[in-house]
Structure formats: C-alpha cells, structure tokens
Design a protein around this nucleic acid. Sequence first.
DNA 1: GCTTGTGAAACGTTTCACAGCC
DNA 2: GGCTGTGAAACGTTTCACAAGC
Lengths: 259, 259
Amino acid sequence: MSQQRNERPGGSASRPARSAAGLPANGSPAHGLSDRGAPLSELPDLPEATVARLPEYLRALHVLAERGDDVVSSEELAHAAGVNSAKLRKDLSYLRSNGTRGVGYDVGQLIDKIEHVLGLNQHRAVALVGVGNLGQALAGYGGFGSRGFHIAALFDVDPARIGDRIAGLPVRHIDDLAEVVALERIAIAVIATPAHAAQTVTDALVDCGVTSILNFAPCVLSVPENVDVRKVDLAIELQILSFHEHRKATLTALPEAIS
Amino acid sequence: MSQQRNERPGGSASRPARSAAGLPANGSPAHGLSDRGAPLSELPDLPEATVARLPEYLRALHVLAERGDDVVSSEELAHAAGVNSAKLRKDLSYLRSNGTRGVGYDVGQLIDKIEHVLGLNQHRAVALVGVGNLGQALAGYGGFGSRGFHIAALFDVDPARIGDRIAGLPVRHIDDLAEVVALERIAIAVIATPAHAAQTVTDALVDCGVTSILNFAPCVLSVPENVDVRKVDLAIELQILSFHEHRKATLTALPEAIS
DNA sequence: GCTTGTGAAACGTTTCACAGCC
DNA sequence: GGCTGTGAAACGTTTCACAAGC
C-alpha cells in the first residue's frame, strides 16, 4: 500500500502518479517522438496550477454565456475569475489557444474546449460515502448537475440509515459498494465519514476500482499511486485564516515604519 | 472596492495584502532595521506553502500526543502528515526550529509552537452566514472546538428560518450582523449562501470589520486588500479530479511506449 | 489600436545532500 | 550512528514586456 502524496502548494491535494517506470522524469519527452503526434484532441500536459484554475474559468464563462456575451477579452475573463490577465492568457495558451488578437476569446468555443480538457463531456457518476451531517448536505446540494457530475449512490455503515432516502437516493450499505460501482461505472468517490473510518472506506473504494477520491475527513489517506486524492478540511482552512488574522493583529500592534 | 486576489497555486484562496505603502516590495527589510528585533515570538514571515501545511502537522501531532508519544522524528511526522521529511524539516526550520539532532522533535513543544504561530491560543469566534443545506451541516460539525474555533453566531435572510435553533444556536437575521460581530469579537466568517447572495453578504461582513472569510459559494468575492478570502468549491475539486480521470483514461487507451 | 500569444526574467517551492550536533 | 538544520540546485509558477496578428 503506497503512501499518499499530499504535496500540492495551495494546501489541499495530492498528485497523480507521474513517471511510473522508466520515463525521463522531467516532463518533456526527450526527442520529439510522440510529442505532438496526437490526432486532434490530445492533452498538452498542463501544469497542475493551470488545471486547478480551469474550473474557475469555466464557471466564469458560464456566467458570461448566460448574460449573452459571446466574446470576452482576457482582461474581462481574468477579472471574473479572480486572476490576472497574463496568467489567464498563459493558461489558455496551453490549450492550444484560440483567441483572436485584437478581439478576444469566443465564449462558447472556450467553454467547449475547457469542458473537453477536463473530461466533462460525459456526466460523471460519483459515489458518496458517509451520510452524516456533511454527507447529507452534499447529497442535497443541487449544483452538481450543471457542473458535470451527479451523485449516483450513497453509502453508510450505520444500519439505522440504510434504506433512508436522501434527495431521492436510497442509502445503501457499504458492502454493496463493489456491485454499485461496477453497475454505475463510478470512478470518483467523495468520503464524508468520520476520520477513523476513512482509511477503511478508502481501501474498499480502491479495491472496487475507484481512482479519484475527494476526502472531507480530517486525515491523510494511503492510496496506490494510480489513485488521486484531493482533500478538503474545514478546520485547516480556518486555521490558515487564523494565521493571517494573527499576523494582521501583530502588524497593527507594533505599527508603522514608513510614513 | 478592490479586487480579490485569488492567486494561490493549489487552487483555493487569496492572499494577504503585502507591501501596502512604500515597502521594498521584495520580502526582506532592506537594511537590517527591525529585522530580528522582535521580543521573543515574532513571526518569521513564513512562506505561504508552509503556512498551509502547518495545520496538517498540527493535526498529526495531536494524534501522536494522544497515543502518548512525546518525541517524533521528521520522518515519522512527515509520513503522518503526508509529506516528505525534507519538506517538513524545512517548514519547521522557519519556526526557529527546536528539534534535537539524533533524536527528533518534542511533540508537546511543537504543538505549542505551531498553535502559537497560527494564533490558536485564543479560541476564535466564527460567524456562519447562510443556514441552508450546507450551512446547517457546518453548524452541526463538532470538530471545531478541538481545533481552535467555535461558531458563535448563525445568520440568514430567510424570515422562515430566523429563530430556529441549530446545534443550540439561534439563527439571527443578517441585519443583526454588526451588533453580534462587535459583541462576540468576531473576525472570521464562513459564507454558505447561494452564489447570488455572497457578494452582498461579503460587503456587510467587511463593513462590520470582519477580515477573514471562508467562502463556500461558487463565485469570486471582491474585498478590500486587508481582507483575506479562502474559497472551497466542491464542484471545482471534482472537476480537477475529473481531469486526472480523463488523463488516466486516455493514457491507458493509447498505451505504453516503454517496457 | 487593441488584444492575444509567448519567450525570458523573477519569484516561490521542493528536493538534494551533507555538515553539524546529539 | 542517527537525525536535525540548511545552503545550493532543481523545478514549477507567475509576471513582464513586447512581437505577432487581427
């Protein structure tokens, strides 16, 4: 059982397993072989930081599209997504960019491209494990459908909860995991169990073939290297804010040095 | 109203306002003045990436402490926190480190130090705005107390909800925000409203003097530069996972090049 | 003229590798 | 002998600034 790589800068994720066997270890495929030999839609090996921002661009684009805009400049879009325009342009350039100089980007086209790169063409079925407080809230959250996902199954261990319906879905016993995952072709799971159960659940998920996990339990998960884990920990987010509060407080306590 | 800086690499936060007035703009205070003149506990200007990991170390340390360990090596602690040991040691070295060579770190001492740096000595009061699905789940989450926070007040706009009690706390109307924030000395707020309400709520919070916001609404917030915003967006996390799923799928479709 | 696309510089973060110390 | 602390190298990301193109 290999160990979780939890090294993402911003503080909440692990990474995919690059360079498994004898790969060059630095990104670029040494001598042009296979480099851009892809038919049409090959993934140009995006930087992780870019990948993490594409969904935000996508959200902003949908807002623009709804407003009826069909062209947007890097400046506008960057503003709407909360980044600066140079970064946005660089990010989009990795997608074999398709803006028009002097004009901007075609909103619809850009939406299609980003959705394609993120693999959102097919709606993805997600399993949710743990229907406590948080799990129920996540199950009830309506916003997924429009963003490429649907929760296809709910699981718990508590016999008292099995059979309950939440947002129209029955809660199933975790023993049914393998069956349902296969049936619904589930590759992504959300863990909303207490920390002490999370590793056991993870092992079960991995055994069923789930290869992406979003973990809300406050603990580190061990997974094989082909499995991706991202983590969301509420208390950690608050603690990071606390640090900045603390710093702001001490900065204003011992005051100015310039004026 | 200045714009949100939402530039954190890992994909979910904005940054504190550095270099407000005539500061040198690069980190170090040009000529030794004030540099390490601090009394005892001065914050050594930690890298953001380090700040984001300290809470994870803290969590892991608490687990160790509960097990009765009182010394831990960088290797062990790093493993428990899901990072590698070099990174851990570098991170701890910014805290004017206090491990013992050949031995390891004192668990209790390290907990104290990290808690102090994060400003967790005082329990921090947090306001939660929006008691829908997610808001209720957050309000009911018991794990805060042990990690330095307590939810001190709940707010909503929906008249039907005002007066309800959730986890022992009454839901108050958002018009009472200023009063309660002052009374409870609240500096941190969590936004769990729909996206369309989030900016209005943010403006109200900022007006009351709140300077840190954790935003669960899927939108970008505009805040003055002294206010920190971190963002958690479920759908974005799933979309990032989707990208990696997509990539894994296409990698196994057009298979090996080495063997 | 205005906006994209992009090399190159600047910056931040991680990893290496080993000296320093117990 | 074993583990910490840390310069220096490697790597990744952001920003700058301007050439290319509509």
